[in-house]
C-alpha cells in the first residue's frame, strides 16, 4: 500500500445526556418484555419437571389421561386443540375473506365502513358470552344438523356418533365465529391498501372486476390476509372458555366431528383448581408448556411464511 492510503475513521458520537437517559428507559422496557417471556418459559419448565422426568417424550404421544392412576398422556388435548382450530379456520377463512372482498370492493364505502365497524365489535364480545350462546343456540341447532347428516351419511366415520350437538363440530363452529372478525377486518384493510394502480393495470388489460380481484388484488394483499389468518389461528389455539362449554370435555381422539373432544386450554381450566397430586399438577403445567410452545411455533412458522412471501415478492425493495 502506498503512503498516500487514506485512513477512514468512525466519528465519535456526541454525548447527549437526555438521549442516554431516554435510551436507558426504553431499553429497560424492552428488556422486561423479553425477560417476562423467558421467565414464563422457565417457570413452566420447572413446574412441569416432575412430569417431564416421569413421562419424557411419551407425554406427547400418550393417549390416556387418568389422574387416579397418575398416568398422563397429552395427545387427546393436543389433537383437540389442533383439530378444533383447524376446523374453525376451514369455516372462517372462506367466509371472512368473502366478507372482506365484498366490503372492500363491492359495497360503497359509506355503507361498508359501518358494517366493518360492527364486524370489529364482534371481536370485543367476551368469550364466555360466545360460549353461552353456543350452549343455548348453536348446540341445539347443530344437533339437528347432525341428526340430519347422521341419518343419511352416518356410516361415514367423519359423521358417526351421537347427534347431541356438543362436540368437535360445535367447538369448530363457535371458534369460527369468534375468529371471523379478525380475518374479515384485517383482510378488508389489506385489500383496501392495495394501490389503485394495481387495479387500474388489470382493468386496462381488459380484465373483469372479478378477474382483477382474484388476480392482482388478492396477490398484492396476500401478506396482510395471511397475517389476519395467523392472528385468528393464535386466538383459536388459545381460546378456552367458549370451547370448554361446547366441546364435551372427553379426552379422546376421534375422526368423527360429532364426538366430544378436549383441548389443552380446556383441561387446564377444568382441572387445575382440583389437581391434588404432585404429578397431576406437573402434568397440567406441562400441558401449559406444550400449548405455549405450540403457539410460539405456529406464530414463528407464520412469520416465516409472511417473510418468505414478502421476500419472494421483493416488496421491501419498493
Amino acid at each position: 500500500m502506498s503512503a498516500g492510503e487514506a485512513v477512514y475513521v468512525r466519528p465519535r458520537p456526541a454525548f447527549v445526556l437526555s438521549d442516554r437517559v431516554a435510551n436507558s428507559i426504553l431499553a429497560a422496557g424492552a428488556a422486561s418484555v423479553v425477560g417476562l417471556a423467558v421467565l414464563l418459559g422457565v417457570v413452566l419448565s420447572l413446574g412441569a419437571a416432575p412430569a417431564l422426568s416421569k413421562f419424557g417424550a411419551g407425554f406427547l404421544v400418550g393417549k390416556t389421561w387418568d389422574p387416579v392412576a397418575e398416568h398422563f398422556g397429552a395427545l387427546p388435548f393436543i389433537y383437540g386443540t389442533l383439530a378444533s382450530s383447524f376446523l374453525a379456520l376451514l369455516m372462517a377463512v372462506p367466509v371472512g375473506l368473502g366478507a372482506a372482498i365484498f366490503l372492500a370492493e363491492v359495497l360503497p364505502q359509506w355503507l361498508a365502513r359501518p358494517i366493518a365497524f360492527m364486524i370489529e365489535l364482534l371481536a370485543a364480545v367476551p368469550s364466555v358470552v360466545y360460549g353461552m350462546w353456543g350452549v343455548f343456540v348453536a348446540v341445539p341447532a347443530i344437533a339437528r344438523v347432525e341428526e340430519f347428516i347422521g341419518q343419511r351419511w352416518g356410516h361415514i366415520p367423519l359423521f358417526s356418533g351421537p347427534p347431541i350437538g356438543i362436540g368437535m363440530l360445535a367447538a369448530g363452529v363457535i371458534l369460527a365465529i369468534m375468529v371471523l372478525p379478525f380475518i374479515a377486518s384485517i383482510s378488508r384493510e389489506a385489500i383496501l391498501a392495495v394501490p389503485r394502480a394495481q387495479a387500474e393495470a388489470a382493468l386496462a388489460l381488459g380484465a373483469t372486476k372479478w378477474e382483477t380481484i382474484r388476480g392482482p388484488l388478492l396477490r398484492y394483499a396476500r401478506k396482510g390476509i395471511l397475517g389476519g389468518i395467523v392472528l385468528a389461528l393464535g386466538r383459536a389455539l388459545g381460546e378456552t372458555m367458549a370451547v370448554t362449554m361446547v366441546i364435551g370435555n372427553v379426552p379422546q381422539i376421534s375422526v368423527s366431528l360429532f364426538q366430544s373432544g378436549y383441548t389443552m386450554s380446556a383441561v387446564l381450566a377444568n382441572e387445575f383448581a382440583e389437581a391434588t397430586g404432585r404429578i397431576h399438577t406437573a402434568a397440567l403445567v406441562e400441558i401449559a408448556l406444550v400449548l405455549l410452545v405450540l403457539t410460539v411455533l405456529v406464530n414463528a412458522f407464520a412469520r416465516l411464511l409472511i417473510w418468505g412471501t414478502a421476500a419472494h415478492a421483493g416488496e421491501e425493495r419498493v
Binding site: 394501490p195 394502480a197 394495481q198 387500474e200 393495470a201 388489470a202 382493468l203 386496462a204 388489460l205 381488459g206 380484465a207 373483469t208 388476480g215 392482482p216 396477490r219 398484492y220 415478492a313 421483493g314 416488496e315
Partner: peptide, 20 residues
C-alpha cells in the same frame, strides 16, 4: 368494455407491474 380495453392498451405514469 372488456373488448374495448383489449383493443386499447394502456401504460401508466408510474410503472405498476403486478407483484408476480
Amino acid at each position: 368494455i372488456i373488448r374495448l380495453r383489449k383493443r386499447v392498451g394502456m401504460v401508466f405514469q408510474k410503472p405498476n407491474p403486478f407483484p408476480a
